[in-house]
Every structure is written in C-alpha cells, then in structure tokens.
Simulated scan of single mutants.
Amino acid sequence: MPVADEPRTTESVRDHSSVAGETAVVTGASSGIGRAITETFVADGADVVICSRTRDDVEAVADELNGADLPGSVHPVECDVTDRDSVEALAEATLEEFDAVDLLVNNAGGAGDGGPLQEVEPEGWEGVVEVNLTGTYNVTRAFADALRSDGGAIVNTSSMAGRYGVAGMGPYSAAKAGVSVLTRTLAAEWAEDDVRVNAVEPGFIATPPVREAYGLDEVPDREPVAREFGSPHEVADLVRFLASDAASFVTGQTLAPTGPPNTFEPPEL
C-alpha cells in the first residue's frame, strides 16, 4: 500500500511555503535583489541579518523595514564577504543575537568593469572572482557548523551569465558558473545534515544599475510574461520558495527567473 502524504489544508500549505519564525542571513542586501529578498522574508515573519560593505546602507534598509510594522525584523551588520575576518565577525554577531541560523542567502556580488578577456587586468579578474565565488565560500564556511547542526537551507545568487557565458563579462561569467557548480557540490555534501542548497540564475532584472543603463523609468509589472526585464521581487519570491519547506525535496538545483527562454543576449540599448 502506498504511503499517503499528509492531507492538504489551507494552513499546512501556507506553513510549508512560509519562512515565518526563521532566522536568515542575506548578504549584499542594501539594494536590488538582496533588498527585495530581505523585504519578502521580513514581510513573511523572518528575522533577517543583512550585510553590505557600507554599514550606513544596510542601516537605512533596517530602519525603513523595522519601522514598517512588519512581522519580522532586520538586523544590519557591516561585512565585506571577501574579508574572512569580517565574515567571521558577521557569523559571531548573528549567533550571539539568535543562537541559530536557519537560512543563508549568498547574494553579494558584482560584475566589475568587464571587457574582452585579454584586456582584463589580473586585479580585475581576481576582484570579481573574490566577491562572487570566494565570497560565497567564505560566508557559507563561516555558517557551516550552525547550519549543519540543525539543518536549514542555502540559496546562492548565480546568473544566467554563468550558464551561457557573455562576451565582455568573462570574469563574472566564470565566477557565477562556479557558484552554480559549488551549489550542486554542497547539496551533495550536506544532504545528510538536512541542509538543502539551491541557487537562482536571474536574467535581466530591473535593479537600479540596470534601470539606469537601459533608461527604465520604473520596475516592470509582472505581466505580461513576454518581457525583457523582471523585477527584484520576482527573484525574491523564488528565493523564498527555495528557502521554505515547500521546496523540501529540492536541492542541488539552479532555477532561472528569466522570462521567455533565451540565451542571455542583452537587450538593445
């Protein structure tokens, strides 16, 4: 006789798809996708530790969201994910405040200056790889014991550039490909510890730099489906799903919020 899953109720569906009551860490949370993830988690009832290299930036986010009468809370910490001492301080501050960590979102990153590979200086290459790939390693390693002791979920921010490779973005493409592979590796290594590890590969998302580059006056509506740009909160909703128990049998996957299938060709400027 087959084993039946639990009966579905409105309450159980909502509980499984929620991160309420969880403690989360979101890096690179001062703007764009990281801020949208933070807003989504806090509105759902999570306590979120956020960080960026500039404390004033994350304090502004924390002040705004903590004053918005949302069920969760925001705790800002200054942290440079490329600096291991800074990352260790982030982990210590988080565990001192909450004693445990349930969710980790490695979102900090940056594309750098770009250009043809032969024109990329070694310092430029190293900087992009450090913040995107090594930063993900640094933060994950710092929270490894806390996550593995009680189980949890990690969501890494990769990019469609890491899937297809983009001319003029060699360091970024390579680093984000590394994030996707690291995601699969960690998912295999930490499954026995009840830690799920997934990633998102956003396409063109209307973050402040993208809006400025393409002259977008506002974040696009969620409809229609056939559009070139998504919104940061559309990525955040996918991250919330991957972080929640609704994705309890999903690990080692990289999901791509991109709109219609494409090969990551930049929209016309």
Score class of each variant (00 low, 15 high):
P122F: 02
A256T: 11
V19W: 01
G152K: 05
Q118D: 12
I33S: 04
C51P: 05
R148F: 09
E92V: 13
E121V: 13
V239N: 00
G124R: 03
F41Q: 02
A243R: 09
G168A: 10
L103Q: 07
T9R: 04
R184A: 06
A187F: 12
E130L: 10
G170P: 00
H75V: 14
S12C: 10
L103S: 03
E119L: 10
L117H: 14
A174S: 13
A153L: 07
T207R: 00
E64V: 14
G135T: 03
R55M: 08
R8H: 13
G127R: 13
V200N: 00
A188W: 13
E201V: 13
W190E: 02
T9D: 02
T207C: 00
E88S: 08
D56G: 08
M160K: 09
S31C: 00
E39Q: 07
L133K: 15
F264H: 11
G152F: 11
P267G: 06
R148T: 15
D44I: 09
G162H: 01
L117D: 08
L117Q: 02
T136F: 06
A236W: 06
D145K: 09
V101T: 05
E130P: 04
E265Q: 14
A236T: 14
G230H: 02
R14V: 13
S31R: 14
R14H: 14
C51F: 10
T23C: 01
